[in-house]
Structures are given as structure tokens and as C-alpha cells.
Design a protein around this nucleic acid. Structure first.
Lengths: 226, 226
DNA sequence: TCCGAATGTAAGCGGCGCCAACATTCCGTC
DNA sequence: GACGGAATGTTGGCGCCGCTTACATTCGGA
């Protein structure tokens, strides 16, 4: 059997991605033909890179280099760049969803829960603006997942609102509208932070929390103007 | 003087951009060495293209082709692509500002004005989502202009709020916070539409108007939950 | 054991942003 | 008007990109 020298790793230029093979105990420093975990490696690298430097900063070729693999290999796992970014967006959306769930457990009443979720949402946006941006600039493939998740959360919110209305805590307006308005305020706060609105740029996590609480409080009491 | 045939326009492949020279009455169908209005042409083409297909859809080379000019020519007018997009963003922000001003004239009181501006803001987002997106994803160069414009509008809003508080129409909370909350709701509605939130995707102009009015009304009266 | 499916590789196409060197034209100054 | 520098074009090219094709290797089930 002929062994093409193309498969012999160069002595110099050992890319960071190859180190993993030492760590995994592959002997002889010979890189195996198959990576073994390329899809997950690409996804995680892309996730980290988007989080730290934005979706525009990633390229399929750079990801391949980072994984120590040829520039065509990633296309075996992601049809094109958009599909990869969709996967990253889905992963990020899952992360956001997890934090929202986490925040809404152990909440005694609807108000507490709504506020906790708003704080968590705004906080995620402040801490991971690039991921937040990617989530909302993505439709197509992961659209299914995102839409489902969104829908579930919205239904939960509407249930809370109706519950509040039955207890005469919430005025008798259309629950859908109330939910939409609440969501708009939450999303707006998050977006203002991500978009770099002058007043809320570079907010600390604690300040973001305070702002979210103050704003939701105002929404509850109303700002008059009538 | 030698006339390089490189400057003779090919008989075939007359790009759309050259038509302007006929329209301007340049005789002989000979394209002059200098375009004469390249900066504005590039800017307007880029503006239209961003509006219709998004910032990612434009390339310096394509703009040059469209203008009937070599691919290096645009760099005489815009240091790099980012600078061009900044200029487009500034133009778009000016347009948005114009519409907000237009909406806020002839408003008798603070409430009417606030609602009119919210409607105009949301409407702009619904009708020009890509421009809206570009405006808010842009910092650097035109940041000055955008920040100034934003600041001016915010100061106006705060003045209105204080005025309302003096007339006992608005509760006695921090005017800055009230302004920020109002802005967040407005920006959130606009962003939900642009970001393709399931419930408000592809909203008609009229529906966007209704939603903006209903949501701002809810913010005034408050949604209870207390 | 064998064969197809999965997953890797090299090579290359066309497009991109941007730069350097050079050409032409415009315009203020004498 | 002549002229020289500034402004604004041109060609050609570098390195990177997304993506495709043809081929190589390995895996895993029949």
C-alpha cells in the first residue's frame, strides 16, 4: 500500500487542533484519517467564536484549520455556512431557554416569575450579545425549534396572565396583547443593550438586573400620560 | 498619445451602469474617464440594495460593476466596506429621523406626540427591516451622528415627561427611567417585527400601527400584576 | 470477509476586500 | 493659456473565502 506523504503531519506548523490527538492518547503523533468527532468540534468552536467575536468572524476554512482538518471536511457535516450558523443559533437558543427555565423555577407567583424571566432574558443578552443577535437573525432551518420554544414560553406567559386576571390582579384586556406588550418591553431592553443604545451600553450584569426590574415595575403600574 | 484599447468600452456586455451616460447626453457612447458622481451613485445603489436585500448582499465589486467602474474605484471614496455601510446607515438614520420629526409635528400634547412617534418608529422598522437592522448594528464612524440624533430625541422625550409630571399626568418616578422604559417598548416592538417574532411576523403597516397604539396604551395604564 | 456508506483529502473555480503602480483629468496658480 | 499637483480613474495581483469535484481511507453491518 502506498502511503502518500500528504498524510504525514509536517514537523513544523502543528496546529492547535492536533493537540487533542495527544490528549486522547493516539500513539506516534500520527493523525488518524478520520477525526472522530468533527461535527461536535466544529459546532463548539463555532459557538465559542460567535460568542466572543460575532458571527461575521467565523469562516468554514478557519474552523477546519482549527480542527486540524482539510477545508472541505466541514461540508460533510454542514451543507453550507448558513446551516452551521443555524446549528450554533439553535445551541444558543437552547442555552437561553435553559436559563429562562432555571430562573422561573421556585417562583411563588406569576409576578415574581415574570420578573425573574425578564431579568434572565436581559442578562443573557448583556452577557452574550453576539449569540443573542445570532438567535434572532436566524430563521430557516432551526426556525422550527426556535418557534416551538418561543411558542411554549408565550403560552406559559399567557396562562399566567389569565390566572392573574381571574384573581383580579391584571386588568381585563386581551391576554395576547398583554403578553405581546410584556415581551416587547423585555425584548426591547435586551435589544437596546445589544444594539449599543447610548444609555444602556456596556451595562454590568447587576445594572442590567436593576433596569429590568425597574422597567417591568413601571409596566405594571403604568406611566400615566393619560 | 497612445490610446490603450483597455479604455474602449466593449461592444457587448454593456452594463446597466453605463446607460446613465446616454441619459446624460454624453455623445458618441464613449465612457468618460471620470464618472463624475461616483460617490453619490455608490451610496444610493448601496442604500437601495441594503433596503431590498440586506447589508450582507452588497459587495464593493458588485457596486463598482453596477456603476460601470473598475472594482478598485470605490475605494477612492470609501476607505473600506465598513465605511460605506456606515454611510448607508447614516443615510438611513437620517431618513428615520425625518419620519419621526414628520410624525411629531402638529401634535397638540405629549401623549399624542409620544404615540405618533412610536407608530412612526415601528412603521419604519416594518417597512425597512434591513435598514433598521443596519442602523442598529453600526457604531464606529457614524456613531457620532447616530448618538447625537438619539440623544436629541431622548432629551425631547424627557422634557415631555417632566412637563407631564408637572401637570400631574405622569407619576413621579425618575423621568430618565420612564423615558428608557418607553423607548424599550417602542424599540422592542420594532425589533420583534424585524427579528421575525412569530406573533408579529410580516405585519401590515396598518396592523403595525394598531399594535403600536395598543401597546403604548397598555404602558400608560399599566398591566397590573401588582 | 466484503462492500457500500461515511468521512476524510487535494485541487481548483469564481468571488471577494483591498493594495500598489500607473493613467487621466481637473483645477488653482503663475 | 501653461503647468503641476490633487483627485479620481485603471490594471493586475495577493490572499482569503465558500463550495464543488474526484478520489482515498476507514467504518460497520450483512
Amino acid at each position: 500500500m502506498r502511503v502518500s506523504n500528504a498524510y504525514i503531519r509536517p514537523a513544523i506548523e502543528v496546529s492547535a487542533g492536533n493537540i487533542v490527538w495527544y490528549a486522547l492518547g493516539v500513539s506516534g503523533g500520527e493523525k488518524p484519517y478520520h477525526h472522530g468527532n468533527l461535527r461536535e468540534t466544529l459546532l463548539e468552536t463555532a459557538f465559542r467564536l460567535v460568542d466572543s467575536r460575532g458571527a461575521d468572524a467565523i469562516s468554514m476554512r478557519a474552523l477546519a484549520r482549527e480542527a486540524g482538518v482539510s477545508s472541505a471536511a466541514p461540508f460533510r457535516h454542514f451543507a453550507d455556512k448558513r446551516v452551521l450558523l443555524d446549528a450554533v443559533a439553535e445551541k444558543a437558543a437552547g442555552e437561553l431557554e435553559r436559563k429562562l427555565d432555571e430562573a422561573s423555577t421556585d417562583c411563588s407567583d406569576a409576578l415574581t416569575q415574570f420578573r425573574a424571566m425578564t431579568v434572565a432574558y436581559v442578562r443573557f443578552a448583556a452577557e452574550h450579545p453576539e449569540l443573542f443577535d445570532l438567535i434572532h437573525s436566524t430563521e430557516s432551518v432551526s426556525g422550527h425549534f426556535l418557534a416551538e420554544v418561543n411558542d411554549e414560553r408565550r403560552l406559559k406567559l399567557i396562562a399566567l396572565i389569565i390566572e392573574g386576571q381571574n384573581a383580579d390582579l391584571i386588568p381585563d384586556a386581551d391576554p395576547e396583547l398583554i403578553a405581546l406588550t410584556s415581551e416587547a418591553l423585555t425584548h426591547g431592553l435586551a435589544r437596546m443593550i445589544v444594539d449599543g443604545h447610548p444609555r444602556v451600553r456596556n451595562l454590568s450584569t447587576e445594572d442590567a438586573r436593576k433596569l429590568a426590574l425597574a422597567a417591568t415595575h413601571l409596566l405594571q403600574t403604568g406611566i400615566g400620560l393619560s
